[in-house]
Design a protein around this nucleic acid. Structure first.
Lengths: 114, 114
DNA sequence: TGCAAAATTGTGTCAACGTGCAAAGGTAGG
DNA sequence: CCTACCTTTGCACGTTGACACAATTTTGCA
């Protein structure tokens, strides 16, 4: 198949390759927040999470909001504090499907797959 | 565990969460190139890949170079044309490990995992 | 040797992004 | 009410990133 034709036909990868998700994960500070949140294994507030990285609270708030809009986190307001949690299921699913799709599109034993 | 402490201890996710990789995948044009390359199931030249997206050849060249440096693609020069291929194995592995790590850090049956 | 093709690199432009600081919502408690 | 706390938003600044176009390099071929 030529790349020209490949553009038109859409395989299982196309709906999985979401630029928004990857862009959200493409920042060290946001990655740190996600890692922290995952290691805590519990919902954390914005102020708590601010202790994870060396930036202002306002910046953390913005990052968390972005991660939520990207589908990485979920938030739950409780009084005046907002608790963020990792959306484990969807995130796991996306990466698992992605691995599967890439694996599937690999031409087995035809080309070098370095 | 508090986010403060979580910052210091490094779990299996920390080495997997590479901002460089996600940043490389966080652009629609680059994603299109990757998708095209995967659907073709064969190495493609820069000129060929240019047919995939509506940008200049120079831009495509830069994108492909970036994807290669990020570990997504591999290149093989043949005469005056350069063929790019998807690095299926490492890419699949990263996403599979990522899915595993996120799944593992999920607190089973304790909090809502929306 | 000269020319054409393929790819890269240089340069300038414009939008998007990350950040800090200050101000502004909301919300619980005295 | 009034204050303190948590969070969000507005604004300004500097950096990064994507892009087009032109020039350059490298290679194959007549």
């Amino acid at each position: 198949m030529d790349p020209q034709e490949a553009t038109k036909c859409c395989g299982p990868m196309d709906e999985l390759l979401d630029a928004g998700l990857f862009k959200a994960l493409g920042d060290p500070t946001r990655l740190k927040l996600l890692s922290c949140l995952a290691k805590c294994s519990r919902p954390c507030s914005v102020t708590e999470l601010t202790g994870c990285c060396a930036v202002d609270v306002s910046v953390v708030s913005r990052h968390l909001g972005l991660l939520e809009r990207a589908g990485v986190l979920s938030s739950a307001k409780e009084g005046r504090t907002v608790f963020y949690s990792v959306r484990y299921k969807p995130l796991t699913e996306v990466f698992r499907k992605l691995a599967k799709a890439i694996e599937a599109s690999r031409p087995k034993g035809k080309h070098a797959t370095t």
